[in-house]
């Protein structure tokens, strides 16, 4: 780890102004992604701005037909929240499978969504539910948020404050884990609800994406077989020592099928 200055602001405005003043500063929430990167010296921020003192970024609340989850909400809190379990059980179940106990006790939804790791879990839920990202400046639709690998629509000094999830009629998630890292090799989040019928695929490609052919197939026939019947092209899929693009493409159909089964 290289030396850096450390700030712990207690308001959104203070956090944003620290970043505006210094483009080489970095936000930190749970630190479960940033800290390993710092320890491996892959990142050399001038200062680290700790968000955990900002009350506005906390909390899980139901607002009408939306579930609003503060960016600082830890994975364990999502996994165990009665509110989440009642409104979007698939989201609570997903949170319970992220990383390990230590990671879930520190990692946050905001950190995960802002980081947009192609192999992360939450981006699939955000896109698959058609959520809205609330930032320190504006609101961004999920469809516009995930730009490319590790890149989002967030600007350097823009903070992810909360995620608003429309409550679906049904939703389900399934994933295959990478045997080494246990991150996602291929996953699918499916939902049916106010945002229409959505299928988001994570892990398999450079960025989470919507599988529109599956959405169409499921719209006319909501069944596991309909999802499985759609073949994902291997063209844009990741291929590496853990599996070829062709294998990942195959997994997309299998995971989508399982996600539909999970959604019921």
């Amino acid at each position: 780890m290289y030396d850096f200055a450390y700030h712990k602001p207690s308001s959104l405005a203070a956090a944003v102004s620290l970043l505006s003043a210094d483009p080489d500063a970095k936000f930190i929430s749970g630190g479960q992604t940033l800290l390993p990167a710092l320890k491996h010296r892959l990142n050399k921020p001038t200062s680290v701005v700790d968000l955990t003192g900002i009350a506005e970024m906390r909390g899980i609340r139901r607002e009408g037909n939306k579930l609003v989850i503060g960016a600082l909400t830890k994975h364990v809190e999502v996994a165990t929240s009665a509110e989440v379990k009642a409104a979007i059980p698939a989201l609570a179940q997903m949170a319970a499978t992220i990383g390990d106990t230590q990671v879930r006790n520190r990692g946050t939804m905001g950190g995960s969504v802002a980081n947009n790791d192609p192999a992360a879990d939450y981006p699939a839920a955000v896109l698959g539910l058609g959520a809205t990202i609330v930032t320190s400046k504006r609101k961004i639709a999920a469809d516009d948020f995930f730009v490319s690998m590790f890149t989002t629509a967030l600007e350097v000094d823009e903070l992810l404050v909360a995620v608003e999830f429309p409550i679906p009629e049904k939703a389900g998630y399934a994933k295959m884990r990478n045997p080494a890292s246990r991150y996602v090799m291929a996953g699918a989040f499916v939902s049916k609800g106010p945002m229409g019928l959505r299928v988001a695929i994570n892990g398999a490609a450079a960025c989470v994406f919507r599988q529109t052919d599956m959405e169409a197939a499921l719209a006319s026939n909501w069944s596991p077989e309909a999802a499985a019947g759609v073949k994902q092209s291997a063209d844009e899929m990741n291929g590496d020592i853990h599996g070829s693009a062709e294998y990942r493409a195959h997994l997309v159909s299998v995971m989508a099928k399982r996600a539909v089964i999970a959604a019921g």
Partner: peptide, 21 residues
């Protein structure tokens, strides 16, 4: 699970727990 993989020229592809199961 375990497999230590080098590319043909000798670059280690499974050089951490992220890739070595």
């Amino acid at each position: 699970l375990e497999n230590c993989i080098y590319d043909e020229e000798g670059q280690l592809l499974s050089g951490s727990m992220m890739d070595y199961a």
